[in-house]
Amino acid sequence: MNAKFLVCSVIFGTVASAAVCAKDVVTARQADMKAMAAATKSIAGMFKEPSTYRPVEFKHSADLIGDKAGRVLIDHFAREAATSSDSKAKPNIIDERERFDRLANDLKSYAGALAAAAENNPTTMTDSMRMKPGEAMGGGPLGTHVRSEEQLSSIPAEHAFHLMLQTCTTCHSRYRME
Results as ranks from 00 to 15, higher is better:
97 R>S: 11
60 H>E: 10
120 N>H: 09
171 C>D: 05
151 Q>G: 09
39 A>K: 00
91 P>F: 11
90 K>A: 15
136 A>H: 13
124 T>N: 05
12 F>P: 01
149 E>Y: 01
116 A>P: 03
145 H>K: 14
125 M>Y: 00
151 Q>I: 05
124 T>V: 14
84 S>Y: 11
72 V>L: 02
72 V>R: 02
107 L>Y: 06
62 A>E: 10
22 A>W: 07
145 H>R: 15
11 I>N: 04
109 S>R: 14
33 M>S: 12
101 D>Y: 06
44 A>L: 13
114 L>F: 08
42 S>Y: 01
52 T>M: 03
50 P>Q: 05
2 N>S: 08
28 A>M: 09
59 K>F: 08
55 P>A: 08
79 R>L: 15
114 L>N: 13
56 V>Y: 09
74 I>W: 10
1 M>R: 05
109 S>L: 14
144 T>R: 15
131 M>G: 07
164 M>D: 05
19 A>H: 04
142 L>F: 14
2 N>E: 06
166 Q>K: 15
61 S>V: 03
42 S>E: 09
56 V>L: 10
106 D>C: 11
121 N>D: 03
2 N>C: 02
66 G>Y: 03
85 S>R: 13
7 V>C: 02
144 T>H: 12
157 A>R: 00
49 E>R: 08
100 F>S: 02
57 E>A: 15
175 Y>M: 01
29 R>A: 07
25 V>P: 01
76 H>G: 13
54 R>E: 12
158 E>C: 07
68 K>E: 03
86 D>L: 15
39 A>I: 04
13 G>R: 05
33 M>R: 05
15 V>I: 13
35 A>P: 02
92 N>I: 15
114 L>V: 12
103 L>A: 12
90 K>I: 12
175 Y>A: 01
112 G>S: 11
72 V>K: 08
69 A>L: 01
84 S>R: 09
93 I>C: 05
94 I>V: 12
155 I>D: 00
124 T>K: 09
75 D>M: 11
78 A>V: 12
6 L>N: 06
96 E>T: 07
123 T>E: 06
5 F>Y: 10
7 V>S: 06
